[in-house]
Simulated assay, not measured.
Amino acid sequence: MFAAYVTLNILASLFTAIAATTYLINHEYPREQMEMKRLPLSWMPRLGATLAAGSLGLLAGFVVPVLGTLASLGLVLYFIGAFIAHARVGSRKLTGWAVFFVTVTATFVVNLAYHDFW
């Protein structure tokens, strides 16, 4: 269980840190996604900061377990919101979303199980 806990937390932290970076540097891909979902581009820094906070929270969870669990829950909620944004415009390009959502959901479940928060 420890190996799954460490691996998933690091993997989810890495994925969300990379995504946060693309949002914060105003990369073309997230800009196109924002336009496709008809969301204001002014939200990009906020969304990037949210992803960065989640990434750092997952790493902080190694020291303060409840922070990691709350960060993983926050990321699950973030990606539920992303799904709603896709669904709102009828987008069926959900492969990237699914990879992130499955990763952060598995991280949340493993955090709950590993720390006996059930």
Score class of each variant (00 low, 15 high):
102 V>L: 15
80 I>Y: 03
58 L>C: 03
112 L>P: 00
57 G>Y: 11
94 L>W: 02
116 D>C: 02
89 V>H: 11
67 L>Q: 00
78 Y>I: 05
114 Y>M: 14
111 N>K: 02
91 S>L: 04
115 H>A: 13
114 Y>T: 09
85 A>K: 07
104 V>C: 01
86 H>F: 06
75 L>I: 11
56 L>E: 02
107 T>F: 01
57 G>M: 12
105 T>F: 14
64 V>L: 13
72 S>Q: 02
60 A>C: 13
84 I>F: 10
69 T>Y: 11
66 V>G: 02
90 G>C: 08
76 V>Q: 02
91 S>Y: 04
60 A>R: 05
99 V>T: 08
59 L>R: 12
67 L>I: 15
64 V>W: 14
55 S>K: 03
109 V>Q: 08
79 F>E: 00
58 L>I: 08
109 V>I: 15
94 L>G: 09
94 L>Q: 03
79 F>W: 13
61 G>P: 05
87 A>T: 09
102 V>F: 14
91 S>E: 11
102 V>P: 06
112 L>V: 14
70 L>W: 10
88 R>E: 10
78 Y>V: 11
68 G>C: 04
102 V>C: 12
111 N>F: 02
90 G>M: 10
99 V>H: 03
63 V>M: 11
85 A>T: 14
116 D>V: 10
88 R>F: 04
87 A>F: 13
80 I>A: 11
69 T>L: 14
117 F>G: 04
100 F>D: 01
113 A>R: 14
110 V>R: 00
96 G>W: 06
58 L>H: 02
61 G>F: 07
103 T>F: 01
75 L>N: 13
99 V>Y: 06
68 G>D: 01
66 V>F: 10
60 A>K: 05
91 S>D: 15
92 R>H: 13
116 D>F: 08
94 L>R: 01
110 V>Y: 01
113 A>I: 10
78 Y>E: 02
